[in-house]
Design a protein around this nucleic acid. Structure first.
Lengths: 341, 341
DNA sequence: TATTTTTGTGGAAACGTTTGCACAAACTTT
DNA sequence: AAAGTTTGTGCAAACGTTTCCACAAAAATA
């Protein structure tokens, strides 16, 4: 494979300058025991000789490197890419590189990815699990290596873990109240898979809001497993064909909300006049679709920062598991606003 | 930092089984000189002792690892994330990990990223440069290490490099002809920065199509530097305020097309009746915005695969620089279709 | 039976760094 | 001027692998 014959090592620099490798190594690190002149000379020749550090060797000797792994379901969701942006920002300023791996929502890929990170010797892992993930032994394996793991958004319901999450319950509760305030009386909730903590929280927020407003448990209509546009489309069609059309829809994902709206357009159901819709995640397309979709803004960039900061805290010795819950905000747009009949 | 005291090494396995480290190493690799029984025993105990390879050490000794770096402007563009998907797919099946780094369109970040990849010891680099990038000495530095570099999409105009690109010229040409066929006579092109090869190609495709259809060079209206939604919005407003409203718009980016359309909606210009619009990249939002936006589908997944395959070819000794041009397809939607007056 | 070949294993060096320890030379302090 | 301290540098071991070389035992050939 790659022919490394060209690589300049500190030994080469040492020979050129008639120094020992230890001095060169120290000089490159700016060690205070080394004289200014030597440091300058070393750095100049290093530059001249096109030297760059051999990370793996340094990592081997030091016992740790400066790469941190991030595993996400998919990077093409604005939500995740914004989180990644936040993570990268704080990690970069702390001297770490961020390595990203996407699982494409596959449990198998997730296992490979986590293992690859372990093998690659990253210092820590931040992960948002796939929808398929029920078992986290692959992640526990990573933990057993003594390196920190921080979950974000898609967390497991395990109090032993470090987590950064949204106030999913509160967000869903608030969105539900908003639908009620706009005159909806027959609400449906399109949820995610129940093995993920956050989706359970959202569902509970929806249910609790209805209960608190005098609805009977039997009036609460929930359909789970709805994360994609296609699922949203199909599920709403089923409601339509069963003549069970609601007048308010809360979707745990902007994409399933989108799918539903596309179906409604086809059959002439008006949003928001016939059905009010609220999504989750505030993907940027929500703003310019027709009608613009109300959604829960989750401040993904902020979440990324908090996640990275929690990771850095692990490095400095904090041991106890912590959970951070971040606020969200309901962005009200046309899809859920109407004059009450 | 991470306390590695818990790590199991091949030496530990060797002690437990009363074998030498060399035998254990070979057994783990399935070397044919080692007996079936030994291999089984080693693998079983490795599993039991929770052993996983120390990648950096192996990389150090072997002179190469199995990680490959991908540097992209941003992962939240569908286009790029689909490319990444394609890359990961072929790399994974060939035993490589993919490390992704996003530059956020910043030249400084790009430099850090490429350097980080070099330090991390990746075996090769696939890169799509930032809009700010004019100089590629940082990438040449990587090349000088003897490792292959493959550019994709955002390539430099340098015949020494390996590249995978879209037929940008043909795509823009085709889209322009489509606008003409729909009765547009006063066309404007919103282009990208001219330091990038691909944007020059697109622009030339637009210009050539007009020339070939009898337009004078003076009739060709081009505005460059338009990659974002905001820029598209602002630029169209300028045209509007200068009373220079075109009847056809080709945008080098779906986002600038979107911005323009949002502005037109505000001032009551109808798409496609007053202005036909075609974008580039076929981001998924194009399909469900109002009206649906015609765009150039670039088959990003395919592009990713080709890019990764080219990289693998480098490893097996192919030396000469090659350029692959991929086909694109014009997706015609409502934004550019009208009955000719 | 004597020789050669195959099979399975071990010893030890090497990959490029970092760092604890040692030590000479140059300064301070008495 | 003797003792102590600081400053700048070098030696050598270590990190966890892989792989060249060697070599004994067993099997195949003569």
């Amino acid at each position: 494979m790659s022919n490394d014959s060209k690589r300049t090592t500190i030994r080469d620099i040492a020979e050129v300058l008639n120094l020992s490798v230890s001095t060169v190594s120290r000089a490159l690190q700016g060690n205070s025991r080394i004289s200014k002149e030597t440091i300058d000379a070393v750095k100049r020749t290093a530059e001249k000789m096109d030297y760059y550090i051999h990370g793996p060797a340094a990592a081997l000797r030091k016992g740790h490197g400066n790469n941190i792994g991030v595993v996400v379901p998919r990077v093409d969701r604005q939500f995740f890419s914004n989180i990644i942006g936040g993570i990268e920002e704080v990690l970069r300023t702390n001297g770490f590189n961020t390595f990203i791996y996407q699982t494409q929502e596959s449990y198998e890929n997730e296992k490979s990815g986590v293992q690859a990170m372990l093998n690659a010797g990253v210092e820590g892992l931040m992960i948002s699990v796939s929808v398929e993930t029920k078992d986290i032994s692959h992640i526990n394996r990573f933990s057993r290596s003594g390196r920190p793991v921080v979950f974000f958004d898609r967390c497991m319901d395990d109090s032993e873990t470090c987590r950064v999450m949204i106030d999913d319950f509160a967000a869903a509760y608030k969105a539900t109240e908003h639908l009620l305030a706009n005159g909806c009386r027959k609400l449906v909730y399109f949820g995610g898979t129940q093995n993920l903590f956050m989706y359970r929280n959202r569902r509970e927020g929806f249910e609790q809001a209805l209960l608190d407003h005098g609805f009977a448990p039997g009036d609460i209509h929930v359909i789970d497993g709805m994360l994609t546009r296609k699922k949203g489309y199909d599920s709403f069609r089923e409601l339509y064909e069963a003549k069970q059309i609601p007048d308010g829809l809360l979707a745990a994902s902007d994409f399933s909300a989108l799918g539903s709206i596309l179906f409604m357009k086809e059959v002439g159901i008006s949003v928001p006049d016939d059905v009010c819709v609220v999504g989750f995640a505030n993907e940027s397309f929500t703003e310019f679709m027709e009608p613009p979709l109300s959604s829960i803004e989750q401040f993904a960039g902020e979440m990324g920062k908090k996640t990275a900061e929690m990771m850095l805290r692990r490095f400095t010795g904090v041991q106890s598991a912590e959970t951070i819950i971040l606020n969200s905000e309901l962005k009200i747009r046309k899809s859920s606003q109407r004059t009450i009949k």
